[in-house]
Simulated scan of single mutants.
Amino acid sequence: MYHLLNTAFGVALPQLADATGIMLFLNAMDKIPISLTVALKVDHIPAYKILKDIVIPIIRPSIISIGAIFFINSWNEYVWPTLILKDKNSFTLPLALQNYISSEGGTNFPLAMALSTIIIIVPLLIYMVFQRYILNSISNSGLK
C-alpha cells in the first residue's frame, strides 16, 4: 500500500516520531518569544516568511543536532531494518555485517572487524562535526 519495504524511507520513517526529537524541538520552539511572532503578524508579515526568516534561523542548531542524532540512530539500527529490508542488496551495513558472522564457528573475524571499523567511522565523523550543536541542544533542553 505505502511501498515501504526495501526502501531507505521505510527504515528512516520511525525516526520522525521519536520522542527525543519531539522534546528537543519543543524546547527549541519554547525559546522563541511569542511577542516576536505576534508583532510580525501585526505588521502583516506572511506566516511562511516568519517561519523562513525568523523561526528556522533561531532553531537551526536544534535542527542540525536532531538531524545528526537521528542519522546516527538510523545508521546503528538493527532490528527495524531486519523487519523492513528483505532484499540483500538493500541491507544496511549492520545487517550486512551479520552475513560475515556465523553461529556455527565459521566466522571470518578479520573481515568482520574490518567491516565493523568501517561502520563506526561515519557516525563518529558525523558526531565530531556536529558535537557542539548536539551538546548545546541537549544541555539547553532542560533550561528555561
Rank of each mutant, 00 (worst) to 15 (best):
G105A: 10
G21S: 03
W80S: 09
I34M: 08
F70E: 15
W75Q: 06
T7I: 01
L95P: 12
W80C: 07
L93D: 05
Y100S: 12
M113A: 03
K86Y: 08
S35R: 06
F130K: 05
D43K: 12
H44E: 05
S137C: 14
S116E: 10
R60V: 04
Y127Q: 14
S141K: 12
L93M: 08
G67C: 10
K49V: 02
R60N: 12
M128A: 13
N136E: 14
P46L: 05
I84Y: 09
V129W: 07
P81L: 02
Y2D: 03
M23K: 10
M113Y: 08
Y100I: 14
L4A: 00
G67P: 04
S102Q: 13
L40T: 01
Y127C: 11
N76A: 03
I120D: 07
L93H: 03
K144D: 02
S74I: 03
L85W: 05
P94G: 05
F70K: 15
L143S: 09
H3S: 12
G142I: 13
E77C: 13
V122R: 05
S103P: 09
A112L: 06
L51G: 04
D43I: 04
Q98N: 13
L97Y: 09
F70P: 00
S139T: 14
Q131E: 12
I54N: 01
M128C: 14
I32M: 00
A112P: 02
V129D: 10
A47W: 11
N89L: 12
S90H: 14
I50Q: 10
G10T: 00
T82L: 15
L24Y: 01
W80L: 10
Y78G: 03
L115S: 13
S103R: 09
P81Q: 11
I32D: 00
S116T: 15
M128E: 14
G21E: 10
N6H: 03
N89D: 12
L124D: 02
S90D: 07
I126A: 06
F91N: 14
L135V: 15
Q15I: 01
V55W: 00
M23Q: 10
V129L: 10
M1W: 08
M113W: 08
T82K: 15
I22P: 01
N73T: 13
L24V: 01
V79M: 15
L5K: 12
F9L: 15
S116A: 15
S35T: 03
P33T: 01
T107L: 06
P33S: 11
P81Y: 05
I121D: 00
R60P: 13
Q98P: 06
F91L: 09
P33M: 06
G67A: 13
F70V: 04
L124E: 01
I54W: 01
A68W: 02
L125A: 11
K52P: 04
V129Y: 11
D30Y: 00
Y48L: 12
N73K: 15
N108L: 12
F91H: 15
A39R: 09
I59P: 04
N140V: 07
L26P: 00
K88P: 14
A17P: 11
A114F: 04
R60E: 14
S65H: 04
K86F: 08
S139W: 09
I32F: 01
K88C: 05
A12P: 05
L40Y: 01
G10P: 13
P94I: 02
R60S: 07
F25P: 01
